[in-house]
């Protein structure tokens, strides 16, 4: 049995009267790739925001590597080893791609590395996501696909143990999805990073995940292997309910 890397106990979060998360319990084991799915507005992004410290949970506790993180600030959580991407990408628009990555390297707060050494390392991350030739372009001049790659590279450059990916496949065409899945495979197997990802592209997330957690209206309605999920009546209903609405 491997180690628990992330654990949520009774995590709840509301916005005004809206309960975006109601007492969610979940566990991620080290090395796993876990998919988080659910209809629009189910609370998936909110869960990522709570885990990464954008806002603290109203109730419940979060543990990362056995450490209580629910009252820490985003930069502290990032430094402990949780990297994330944003569903609506948020690159530093008026900075170059290289500078975007450098920020993550600076954010690690390591001592003893010169800026030149960090630049060299940053280029490797750009290379990894295929943006090496865009090193000096401003982020605002990138295409959406390129911005998404930059977003992933930036999250990786924080040197995470756990990576939260929020709909990185949305808007990609089938061949780009295949490329992205390959990247995710490498992140997992070679970089040994645990992955927690949100996706609406069902084929991809079912194929590439070890386990799936399903949220609906702020509640965890199902959790299990991909093949158990697709045949579950509650899950099908949650999704059908959405398409009927």
């Amino acid at each position: 049995m491997s180690r628990r890397i992330l654990e949520g106990k009774g995590v709840a979060k509301s916005f005004g009267g809206l309960m975006a998360l109601r007492q969610i319990d979940f566990v991620l084991e080290e090395g796993e790739i876990v998919g988080l799915i659910g209809p629009n507005g189910a609370g998936k992004t909110t869960l990522f925001n709570v885990v990464s410290g954008v806002y603290p949970p109203d109730r419940g506790e979060l543990f990362f590597d056995g450490r209580l993180i629910s009252s820490l600030k985003p930069y502290q959580i990032c430094r402990l080893g949780i990297g994330r991407t944003f569903q609506i990408v948020r690159p530093f628009l008026k900075m170059t791609c290289l500078e975007n990555i450098l920020i993550s390297l600076i954010g690690r707060g390591e001592r003893g590395k010169t800026l030149e050494e960090k630049k060299k390392e940053a280029r490797e991350f750009l290379e990894f996501v295929g943006l090496r030739n865009r090193e000096n372009s401003l982020a605002k001049d990138l295409t959406l696909i390129e911005k998404k790659r930059l977003e992933v590279a930036r999250a990786l450059a924080t040197k995470p143990k756990l990576l939260l990916l929020d709909e990185v496949l949305a808007g990609l065409n089938p061949s780009e999805i295949l490329q992205a899945l390959e990247l995710i495979h490498v992140i997992r197997t070679q970089m040994k990073i645990t992955i927690f990802w949100i996706e609406h592209v069902m084929g991809a997330i079912m194929k590439a995940s070890d386990r799936i957690i399903v949220l609906d209206q702020g509640e965890k309605i199902k959790e299990g292997k991909p093949e158990e999920i697709v045949s579950d009546p509650r899950v099908i209903e949650a999704y059908l309910g959405e398409s009927n609405a």
Partner: peptide, 25 residues
């Protein structure tokens, strides 16, 4: 032109993204 200057600009560009990259904004 130092790392601190880069952090300044990151904070100006997008405070939340900077914080999520480990910068103590």
């Amino acid at each position: 032109h130092s790392e601190m200057g880069l952090s300044f600009r990151a904070v100006l560009n997008d405070e939340l993204a900077a914080a999520s990259s480990g910068i103590d904004t």
